[in-house]
Design a protein around this nucleic acid. Structure first.
Lengths: 358, 358
DNA sequence: ACGCTATCCGAAAGCGGTTTCGGTTGTCAA
DNA sequence: TTGACAACCGAAACCGCTTTCGGATAGCGT
């Protein structure tokens, strides 16, 4: 265990103090704006400090103060093989916001054979982080349960089934899918199928709820074979579309749990020679830039991932600064972005031509 | 500045030592496998340590040892609005690899009005990181210049124009594009256009070099209007395609600097009613999962971003552990993934039917 | 029984800051 | 003048762990 320190390179408070002819304590208090230091001393210290390029060692400061201005973010174990673009944006926003408050962002992965809670526990016990942000919540999420018991501040992007006693920021997924349904029904659709995700993930659950309750409210029939779960990749989306096309009562619209699923569905439809946006309408959720690029453009419910990241960062820092503060529980709305993939259904005649008698 | 410490929660080495009836020093040495501690003492200490759930405070340990096992990664200032999926994968791999060596990953953003070097400088001076990974290198990159002067270990994903004196891992972009050209020429193409990126970014430069040198080697004509630069988003790709379609000598193939550009081009072509893969072939670079989903599938040069992240992580840690070690300079090859978007050009007759006299 | 190595462990000095607690000054009213 | 009270600053303890150094103990040969 060699000492690798390059202590020469960096200015310590001791050097600064000697340089100024002051004691270390005074210099420290000056830099931290203690009221009992003369204004001009403060100024003098400040000046010397940035002339010498002094930056207090965060390590030492942490040890002395006992606070760690770092929030942890554990990357979800990669079930698939690619990181979700939504997460990447959140991270970006989070890092940006934290930078403004001089907090750091520690990103951790979960090595094989370990689990997320274990990783989080180590991060806390070893004092590497002083707070957490968790995303991609399951309806019933061990990470949240763990953090509830631990005493570090944390904010959840999303919610769990029981979410009254911690801070979170979520998109109103249920309302978003009701809105999407309203839009489809407003366009004249009645036969709407749903391509859902893993219902353990709370957002997928909520979205399905939104779909189902809206269908009920509008009196839309949801025949068996109209609702799919666990559509998590392109291939699954294709299979689902294939089945739907064989359905005796073929839907005129598809509501999809994410843009990725919607895009998969669109490709599958195109592949089957179905014209998207006229023969069948498709709506997604996320607002990925990708949706703008494909043809037809994807009508979707957009959420501002980057902003979500920023807001979550703001909240977690606020909570760390005022530990006993009220818990923020914030619900944001997704907004409908209309592009070419959802339009009124084909005229009755066409519909009749298929199943029709009259 | 209140003390927010939850010092009660966490076991310190003092408590552990008292519990064992040993001195702190002995406990420390036992846990760090010093040879001068009796084997059974070590065992006893170990046992007690994880019974009590003791985790040494990284802060204190860092202060004492003078080393910071954290590597920094500065997110490129977001010129666009979305984070590059390639970066996200690298981060994932990096985090995974670092976790194996018990290193941490600190992700920092660049606040408005600051620049990347400034952020890196602060991270180093304040002792928050002990090494860096930089990605998305420009041909002539101030970050690399800065790190060269600073004395922290760092590894560059990519290279700069002058790259002999630091550690890097790069894809052989030039060779990749030569390979892609060989593939196209092998299929029978002679009229190949190039949709390039920002030539300040070294990979874009290298890829264009590869294209140009291969074109020359094969004796392919590259008429003016065949080479585009600064295609950085879908819109630009569309505009370029539009121009190419009006070109008096319309190309039979498009080589694109990235998959994103290729996908943009494909959509533009589809939109113009051109059948991709028969009328015009398209090749991309990256191997994004997206390329598999579109129709036709995108023929592309794949790079294993996640693996790149891991390897870069391995290198930077190795370098931090053995500061004077040889610099790793590693070149990986991209591999050709053949899908539907590149095929032999339309038969001569068709070609002739257009511009032909005979 | 004695001295002499090995073996093992305790004491103590850091690491670079922060923060409490007093002790000096200078000022001003009595 | 003198005393009291601010206003400022220095001394020193501490945060939790590491590491050097030397002392105590035990085992061994003689």
């Amino acid at each position: 265990m060699p000492r690798v320190k390059s202590r020469s390179e960096t200015v310590s408070i001791a050097q600064l103090a000697k340089h100024l002819g002051l004691s270390e304590g005074t210099v420290s208090r000056a830099l931290n704006n203690y009221p009992d230091i003369a204004k001009k001393t403060i100024a003098r210290v400040r000046k010397a400090a940035d002339e010498l390029g002094y930056r207090p060692s965060t390590t030492a400061r942490r040890l002395a103060r006992g606070v760690v201005e770092t929030i942890g973010f554990v990357l979800p174990a990669r079930h698939g093989h690619q990181i979700d673009p939504f997460l990447a944006e959140i991270l970006d926003g989070l890092a940006t916001e934290l930078a403004l408050s001089d907090w750091d962002l520690l990103v951790a992965a979960v090595p094989d054979g370990h689990d997320e809670v274990e990783v989080m526990d180590r991060l806390i016990r070893s004092g590497k982080v002083g707070g957490f942000v968790v995303a991609r919540t399951r309806r019933n999420d061990p990470r949240v349960d763990f953090l509830r018991k631990s005493h570090v501040p944390f904010v959840v992007q999303g919610r769990t089934a029981k979410s009254d006693d911690y801070a979170w920021l979520d998109i109103d997924n249920e309302k978003a899918f009701i809105d999407a349904m309203n839009h489809l029904v407003g366009l004249g659709h009645r036969k709407i199928a749903y391509l859902g995700g893993d219902p353990d993930l709370n957002y997928a659950w909520q979205r399905r709820e939104g779909f189902l309750s809206a269908a009920k409210a509008h009196g839309c029939d949801v025949p068996s074979g109209y609702v799919f779960d666990n559509i998590t990749d392109e291939m699954a989306a294709r299979r689902a579309v294939t089945e739907l096309l064989k359905h005796p009562d073929r839907p005129t619209a598809l509501l999809c749990v994410t843009d990725a699923v919607a895009i998969g569905a669109i490709h599958a439809l195109a592949h089957a020679g179905i014209e998207v946006g006229s023969e069948i309408s498709v709506i997604g959720f996320d607002g990925l830039p990708m949706g703008e690029a494909i043809h037809p453009g994807l009508t979707t419910m957009s959420q501002a991932s980057y902003q979500i990241g920023r807001e979550v960062g703001r909240i977690v820092v606020a909570q760390a600064n005022v530990p006993a503060s009220e818990l923020s529980q914030i619900l944001w709305e997704a907004s409908l972005t209309i592009r070419g993939s959802a339009n009124p259904p084909a005229q009755k005649s066409v519909t009749n031509a298929k199943g029709g008698i009259s």
